[in-house]
């Protein structure tokens, strides 16, 4: 897996598939190693997504958000 997953849920779904496949014991050595590699990348992505909402809840008013967006566009 070289591309970033499109969302957390897609990543988690794929991760569950990978673990099911690995748990089944049906995967060959090469596939196992590739799945483990992909799984680790997905875990890294998911951990980063969780970290993004793990720094403490922030509060903004809609006006402040609008002002911020305006300043970003200009």
């Amino acid at each position: 897996m070289s591309e970033k997953p499109e969302s957390y849920e897609v990543a988690v779904e794929r991760l569950e598939e990978i673990i099911d496949r690995l748990d089944s014991g049906q995967a060959g050595l090469r596939e196992t190693l590739e799945l483990c590699h992909e799984g680790r990348e997905l875990v890294t992505y998911c951990a980063a997504e969780l970290d993004a909402v793990g720094e403490g809840l922030k509060e903004l008013k809609l006006d402040e958000l609008a002002t911020r967006l305006d300043s970003e566009t200009t």
Partner: peptide, 9 residues
Amino acid sequence: GWGGTVVWA
């Protein structure tokens, strides 16, 4: 455990 941003309207 959610620490994202809440935008109040």
